[in-house]
Design a binder for these strands. Sequence first.
RNA 1: GCCGGUGUAGCUCAGGGGUAGAGCAACUGAUUCGUAAUCAGUAGGUCGUCGGUUCAAAUCCGAUCACCGGCUCCA
Length: 602
Amino acid sequence: MSAPVTSPEPAPIALPKTSESAELLKIRHSMSHVMAMAVQKLFPAARVTIGPWTENGFYYDFDNPDPFTEADLKAIKKEMGKIIGRRLPLERIAVTREEAEAKIRAQNEPYKLEILEGLQEPITLYTLGDQWWDLCAGPHVANTSELNPKAFELESVAGAYWRGDETKAQLQRIYGTAWETAEQLAEYQRRKEEALRRDHRRLGKDLDLFSIEDEAGAGLVFWHPRGARMRLLIEDFWRQTHFADGYELLYTPHVADISLWKTSGHLDFYAESMFGPMQVDEREYQLRPMNCPFHVLTYASTLRSYRELPIRWAELGTVYRYERPGVMHGLMRVRGFTQDDAHVFCLPEQIGDEILRVLNLTETILSTFDFKTYEINLSTRPEKSIGDDAVWDLATKGLIDALDRKGWSYKIDEGGGAFYGPKIDLKIEDAIGRMWQCSTIQLDFNLPERFDLNYVAADGSRQRPIMIHRAIFGSLERFFGIMTENYAGDFPFWLAPEQVRLLPVTDEVVPYAEDLLSRLKAAGIRASLDRSGDRLGKLIRTGEQQKIPVLAVIGAKEAEDHAVSLRSRRDGDLGSVAINALLEAGQEANQTRAARLNLPAA
RNA sequence: GCCGGUGUAGCUCAGGGGUAGAGCAACUGAUUCGUAAUCAGUAGGUCGUCGGUUCAAAUCCGAUCACCGGCUCCA
C-alpha cells in the first residue's frame, strides 16, 4: 500500500459574520453608504431610505422611478470603485433635530424625514467626503481607503417594501457583499456555489427523487420511486422509534365537515391559509390544514380515565394549506405536505416528564440523519392569551424543567408563545452551517377547552387534560429537502435508494452478476445491475454521478472467486470482497442504519 | 400577492419575423473492454399556454400559468 501523495492542506479561509467582526461591520456599513452615494450620482432621482449590514454583506433600499437592471449594477459597482479610490473621509457629526430636519428638507429626502421622526437625540449623521451624507448611527470606517475595492460585489436587485410593510411603497433593494480581502470574497463565492451544488431542487431532478408537475399545480409533490423508497425508509424508522417510545399511531381523514374547523377556531383565524371548502351532498367539507382536531375527536370518542394518561398518538398526517403564489420553494414550502404530528394528552403533573421524552425522541431521530447541533428557543406567554396564570406557570415550568434535565441550553423568547400555550422550537444546523427550524413542541390550552375534552379524575370529577402538540421532522417534504442538502445528495448507505450497483466488465460475467443481484435483493439490499454494455470506466463514471454508495465491479476474476471488487463512494477502493461478506455487511448496515459498509479486514 | 428576471429536445444551452440547432442523455449496431466519458448511426420539439398584429410569429404585442432571486408570509 502506498501513502497517498498530498499537497499541504491550504489554510482554511475564515469567513466571519458581521455579528462576529467589528471591523467587517464597519466595512459593510460603510460600503452601503458608498453604494448609496454611487446610486444617487448615477440616478439623481433615487431617494435613499435605509442601508444596513447583513451577515455577509449589506443592502440599501432606494425609491427610484425605474427598477435597476443588471447593467445598472455594473455601472454602480464601477462608480463605487471610483468613490473608494478617492480616499474620502467618513465623519460622524452630532446635530440637533432641527439641523437634521433642515438638511434633509434641503435634499428632499422624504424617507429620511420619516426616519428622523422616530429617532431619539442625540442624532448623528455620517458624511462621505463633502458631497454626500446620511442620517446614521454608525459605526463606519474613517476613510474609504480602508475599503478594499477588490473585495466587494453587488449581488442582486430585489423588490422590498418600505418598512417591510406590503401596503407601503415598493422600493428597490440592492444587495452586496463585502470583505476585508479578495481571498475572502472568493471563498464566499465558492461557498455560495457549494450551496447551489447542494440545492435539493437540483439534486431531486438529477437523482430522480421527486418532481413538481406544472399540470398538477404548484406546491404539490410527486415522489418518484427513488425518493419514495427513501421516504419509506424514513417513515419506517420513524414508526419504529415511536412504537418503542410508547406512542400509538392513528390514521384520520384528509377532509372533514367544515363544522370541525368552526369548533376548532381555525375558520376564524386560519381561513386564509386554507383551501376553499367543497360542497358534497348537503354538507360542506374542508380539506385539512392541520391534524389536531382529528386527534382531539379521537380522544373525545369515549370517556377517558386519568389511569389512561398520558395518551401519545402520532400520525404521518397529510395536510393542505393555501400558500400564496410566489412563495412556493421546492420541497421547503409546498401546498400539500405530511407532518409527523403527534399529540400527547396528559395530566398537569406529567408535563415535565412528557416533554423530556419528546426531547429525547427528537434527539434520537434527528441524530440518525446526522443533525447533531441544535439551537433551542423557549417561548413564553404573550400579552394576549387564554388560560389562567396557574396553568401557564405550571406548563412553562414543565418545559424549563425538561430542558434542564435534558441538559440543553436554550434562549427564552419572552412573550413569544402562541395565545394558547408556551412552546419549544428546535433548529438544526446543516453541513454548511445553515440553521433550519423543524421540530416544535407546543402546549395547547385552547383545543381541549373548545372541544370540551376531559377525563375522570381519581375523585370521580371531570378534569381537563393538558394537550401537547409536537412534530420532529415538521414536514416530511421539508425535512427531506433539508436532509438532501445536508448530505449534498450523498446519502448514507442505509438511506440510499440504490445501495449497490453491479458493474460487469464483460458480457460473459452477466449471468454471474444476475445471480448475485437476486441474492442481494433477497438479503434486503437495494441493488441493481448496469446492463448498458458500456466500458467499465463509463459504468463507474455513471455510478459516481448518480451517487451510488457502493459500486461492485465484476470481471472474470471475481466470477471465478465468488467475489466482487468494491468501490465505495465515501472510502474509495475496498478491494476484493467475498460475496457472503458483502451480503452480511449490507444487511448489518441496513439494520444499524449505518453510513457505510463495515467489511471484515481482508 | 408585490418587484425584477426566465420559460426552445429528458438535461445544459444557442438562435431571434421567412423549412427548428448543438453537446450530453436515450435508442440501434459494432466493439468484450478492469476503476470517472469506445466508435458509428437513429430518433426526439405544435419554442410554457391562450389570444392579438402580420402575407408569414418560436421571434413583436397582450393576457395567463409555472419557475428563479428577493419582499411579505411560513412546516
